[in-house]
C-alpha cells in the first residue's frame, strides 16, 4: 500500500517553498545594489562590507555571543545538578510531584508571561538592594532561568538510560563520593549534558521576547537590533545581517543533527 499519496508529496513541496521562500528572498535581496526599495539594481556585496564597519551591529553581535555563551555555561552546570539531584536521589512522591511542576514550569510558560515575571522579579530585587540595573547581567539571569529546565530534561533522558551498576561497582572499589561523581557519573552523562548545552545555546540565540523585556539601553542583541531597525524601514544592510544569521543557524542545526545520538540510524 502506498504510504504517501501524490497529493501529499505536492502539498509538502509547496509547504517547504512556503517556509523557505521568504528566507530565500531576504538572501537574494541582500546582494541587491539599489539602496532604496526592492527593485533589482544589479549584484553587489556592498552591504556585507558596510556591515563589518557598523560599530552598532558589531556590538550587538558581540553581546549576542557573550549572552549565549555565558548563560549556556551557567545553565548547563545548574541544570545538570538539578537533574542529578532530582533523579539520582530518593524523593517522596509528594516532593517529587512538586519538583516536577517546578521543573516543567519554564517549559510551559508562554514567553511573554516569563518576561513579565522576570521584569517584576528584577524590579523587586532592585527595590530591595538598590543594585541590578537592567542590562547584560539581567539578560544572562533571564536566559539561565529558562535554559535550566531544558538542560535538566536533556540530562534526565540520559540518566534514565544508564543504570546504577557502574556507580555501585565504583563504590565497591572504595571510590569516594566525589570520585564517583566526577570520574563515573559525569563522564557517563556527557552525551546528555552536551545535548542540553547545545539546546540551551540555540534557545538563547533564538530568543527575542525575554531579551526584549530584560535588556538595558546599552545591551542590544542582534534580534533586538533587527527589530528596532524594521520599525525605521527595511534596508539592504538588514538583509545582509539576516542572511548571515540564517547561514549560522543552518550550520548550527546541521552540526546538532550530526551530533545527535540518533544520527547514525
Amino acid at each position: 500500500m502506498k504510504r504517501c499519496s501524490i497529493g501529499s508529496s505536492i502539498g509538502s513541496v509547496a509547504i517547504f517553498i512556503f517556509l523557505y521562500l521568504p528566507m530565500l528572498s531576504v538572501a537574494v535581496f541582500s546582494f541587491n545594489a539599489s539602496k532604496m526599495g526592492l527593485k533589482w539594481g544589479g549584484f553587489s556585496t556592498e552591504w556585507y562590507e558596510k556591515l563589518v564597519h557598523n560599530q552598532m551591529i558589531l556590538n550587538a553581535a558581540w553581546n549576542t555571543l557573550v549572552l549565549a555563551v555565558t548563560s549556556t555555561f551557567i545553565s548547563t552546570i545548574i541544570g545538570t545538578m538539578l537533574a542529578i539531584g532530582m533523579f539520582r536521589f530518593p524523593w517522596s512522591r509528594r516532593a517529587m510531584n512538586k519538583l516536577n511542576v517546578l521543573l516543567h514550569l519554564p517549559v510551559v510558560t508562554p514567553d511573554i508571561i516569563f518576561a513579565v515575571a522576570l521584569v517584576i522579579a528584577f524590579s523587586v530585587i532592585r527595590y530591595m538592594t538598590g543594585l541590578f540595573e537592567l542590562g547584560m547581567a539581567s539578560m544572562i539571569v533571564g536566559h539561565v532561568t529558562f535554559q535550566i529546565s531544558f538542560v535538566a530534561l536533556a540530562v534526565k533522558g540520559r540518566l534514565e538510560l544508564i543504570g546504577h551498576d557502574v556507580e555501585e561497582a565504583a563504590c565497591d572499589l572504595y571510590a569516594g563520593y566525589w570520585r564517583v561523581l566526577t570520574r563515573v557519573l559525569l563522564p557517563m552523562l556527557m552525551p546528555g549534558i552536551v545535548a542540553g548545552a547545545m539546546l540551551a545555546f540555540t534557545l538563547s540565540l533564538d530568543d527575542f521576547v525575554i531579551s526584549f523585556f530584560t535588556a538595558g539601553p546599552k545591551s542590544s542583541t542582534l534580534p533586538l537590533f533587527i527589530y528596532a531597525s524594521v520599525k525605521r524601514g527595511i534596508t539592504p544592510e538588514i538583509h545582509a545581517l539576516s542572511t548571515i544569521i540564517m547561514l549560522a543557524t543552518i550550520c548550527t542545526v546541521a552540526f546538532m543533527q550530526k551530533m545527535a545520538p540518533g544520527a547514525k540510524h
Binding site: S25, F29, T202, L222, I226, V230, V253
Partner: peptide
Amino acid sequence: PFWTNLVIRTYAWLL
C-alpha cells in the same frame, strides 16, 4: 526554519 530567529522570519515576510 524552526531554529531560525523569529524576528528574522517575520521580517522576511515583510519583504
